[in-house]
Design a protein around this nucleic acid. Structure first.
Length: 575
RNA sequence: UGGGACGUAGGCAAGCGGUAAGCCUCCGGAUUUUGGUUCCGGCAUGCGCAGGUUCGAAUCCUGCCGUCCCAGCCA
């Protein structure tokens, strides 16, 4: 018995099309694929594609293959194949035993090319690169200097006999001709309004060892030829891709129909763009090569590996992917939505700790000499099952430098001379004074008294203490390095640059701040690399692989929402 | 210029002829031992613009305007 519909499930336009195909019988099942080229690491834009490819298959009880779209020996590498698999697994998608390589299809592809030649639908062309471009019919200015696209011209080699083409193509494969001297082209229509249909190149000669096939081949198939046929070989029903391939669809269908192979249906959707970053392997590769970041997994990178190292959770990323939707509109998603999803997930799961990033000493004048108390602290207020832990409290503590002001601005309710504040899980204290370095003006020590009746932070007299600040006992402090990240680009759209500039010029000069003097409560020692926790009042932090036994390194994943900083800025702006 | 697509709030995005969902941001307020979380409330008399059809149009028609993509022997 089918369940009564509790609510109609949201259907994007792709799922609607797939459902329709199933209804009409165009396909009996759903089988998709994720086809990265192993020429760079996956970024959040790929994660969207993964979410669509695997998600659609799953929703319709189908399968999704992982296929390395490796048809260009110049750019591809095994390093990337491994990184790609690692990232997809981490994100939580499973291709089971279906990892494929377009390079495994080279022989089949070659045979299909011969088939097209035999059908008189492909020919070997001797035109060089420049000539091909010229013959294709590109932008030409007319007498009024308005550019237009004239019909292309047929190559003089277009009408070679089938036998000659077959022979030439075989000799191309055998390595008889130099790189670039010949191509195999589909014979379609040199006057077609869609330039892609003007006899597209199917094969080029390129003597370069391929990372998987080595020197077996010196001719390599082009994307437009290899992709639809790879889809067909795998029995892909729905070939989902990004909008820029929309114009390739007629060609996709042409190869499918003329090679007489399984007719996959290509459907295009808008790729992901996010503010304050760039989402293109080419630009990310440039950042890596020019050492603008430490590598593909630099925590500031929008790569999956970067986000993982930064402390983003796979669940948070998946939630984000689900919220942005799928459509055909070119869009630019606010990075704050991603951050919101990460915070929401981490708020529920991350253990809380106390750490001070920029410490200043706080001395409790009436604290008994040498006394240490171990106080109870809640591990995660969102999850009682996370339990409690003990934190040492003593007469000398470190507090955040920003939690004390000599001259407090309006609405500031942290520590300042004469004011009361609660030390989280500790005591309520009153600030009695402070010292400054006469040379620098920097506060060197803050003094206060504590109220013994307020142990744990409760006020028996119900007095109102607005501020609660975090702290670390000086004698028990665990020093560590905190890496604080900000957007890689201050501009919302880094690619929008003025004349003569590039996105590199838009790189922020404060995307990374290192706090080398940070200290934390002793329990921090127990954390493993890769664990993400919350430092109370500061944000979420993830233990970095750069950590050593002597000294831990923590990446700030994302700050907590901070309405005070916002208010203070506003107050400052209004004088 | 030719060809292909897309325009709903600051950013995403539902809506499929019956009178503009939801999320993020932003702005108020309540609770709070994290200025966190949570909770309440506000935020499109209008859907690129102009006409038309209709009792009724974001949805259908016509014409404009704007944005993006293609013109690699990259994918």
């Amino acid at each position: 018995m089918p369940e009564v519909n509790e609510k109609t499930e949201y259907m994007d336009f792709i799922r609607e099309a797939v459902a329709e195909d199933l209804r009409t019988g165009r396909f009996k099942e759903v089988h998709t694929r994720f086809p990265p080229e192993p020429n760079g690491w996956l970024h959040i834009g790929h994660a969207k594609a993964l979410f669509v490819d695997f998600g659609v298959a799953q929703d319709f009880g189908g399968k999704c293959n992982l296929r390395m779209d490796d048809t260009n020996p110049e750019k591809e590498d095994m390093e990337y194949v491994e990184a790609i698999q690692r990232d997809i697994k981490w994100l939580g998608f499973d291709w089971e035993d279906r990892l494929f390589f377009a390079s495994d299809y080279y022989e089949t592809l070659y045979e299909l090319a011969c088939k097209l030649i035999r059908k008189g639908l492909a020919y070997v062309d001797d035109l060089d690169e420049e000539q091909i471009k010229e013959y294709r019919g590109t932008n030409v200015p007319d007498k009024n200097n308005i550019t237009y696209t004239p019909p292309g011209k047929n190559s003089p080699w277009r009408d070679r006999s089938i036998e000659e083409n077959l022979d030439l193509f075989a000799r191309m494969r055998a390595g008889e001709f130099p790189d670039g001297s010949k191509t195999l082209r589909a014979k379609i229509d040199m006057a077609h309004p869609n330039l892609l249909m003007r006899d597209p190149v199917m094969y080029r000669i390129r003597r370069m060892p391929h990372y998987r096939t080595g020197n077996t081949w010196c001719i390599y198939p082009m994307y437009d030829f290899a992709h639809p046929l790879s889809d067909a070989i795998e029995g892909i029903t729905h070939s989902l891709c990004s909008l820029e391939y929309e114009i390739h669809r007629p060609l996709y269908d042409w190869f499918v129909s003329n090679c007489e192979v399984f007719p996959s249906r290509q459907i295009e959707f808008a790729r992901l763009n996010i503010t304050h970053t760039v989402l293109s392997k080419r630009w990310l590769l440039q950042l890596v090569r020019e050492k603008k970041v430490s590598g593909w997994d630099d925590p500031r990178m929008p790569t999956i590996a970067g986000m993982r190292r930064r402390g983003y959770s796979a669940a948070g990323i998946r939630d984000f992917l689900g919220r942005i939707g799928i459509a055909k509109t070119d869009s630019m998603v606010d990075i704050q939505l991603l951050e919101h999803c990460i915070r929401e997930d981490l708020n529920a799961s991350a253990q809380r700790y106390m750490a001070v990033l920029n410490p200043v000493k706080l001395v409790i004048e009436n604290w008994p000499q040498g006394r240490v108390e171990w106080l109870d602290a809640v591990n995660n207020p969102e999850n009682p099952q996370a339990g409690m832990r003990k934190i040492p409290f003593s007469g000398t503590l470190y507090i955040e430098r920003d939690d004390f002001r000599e001259n407090p601005p309006p609405k500031y309710y942290r520590l300042y001379p004469g004011n009361q504040v609660r030390l989280r899980y500790g005591y309520i204290i009153t600030c009695t004074g402070f010292d400054k370095d006469p040379a620098t003006g920097e506060v060197t020590e803050i003094r206060c008294t504590y109220d013994p009746a307020t142990k744990g932070g409760d006020a028996p007299d119900n007095r109102k203490v607005k501020g609660t600040i975090h702290w670390v006992s000086a004698d028990h402090a665990v020093p560590f390095e905190a890496r604080l990240y900000d957007y890689l680009f201050e501009a919302e759209r880094p690619m929008e640059v003025s004349e003569g500039k590039t996105f590199i010029d838009n790189l922020s000069d404060h995307s990374l701040t290192v706090e080398k003097r940070a200290v934390a409560e002793p329990a921090l020692r127990e954390l493993a690399v890769g664990q993400t926790v919350q430092f109370e009042r500061l944000g979420y932090f993830c233990k970095d692989p750069d950590s050593t036994n002597e000294r831990a390194v923590f990446n700030r994943t994302v700050t907590l929402k901070d309405s005070w900083t916002k208010l203070e800025k506003k107050l400052l702006a209004n004088g």
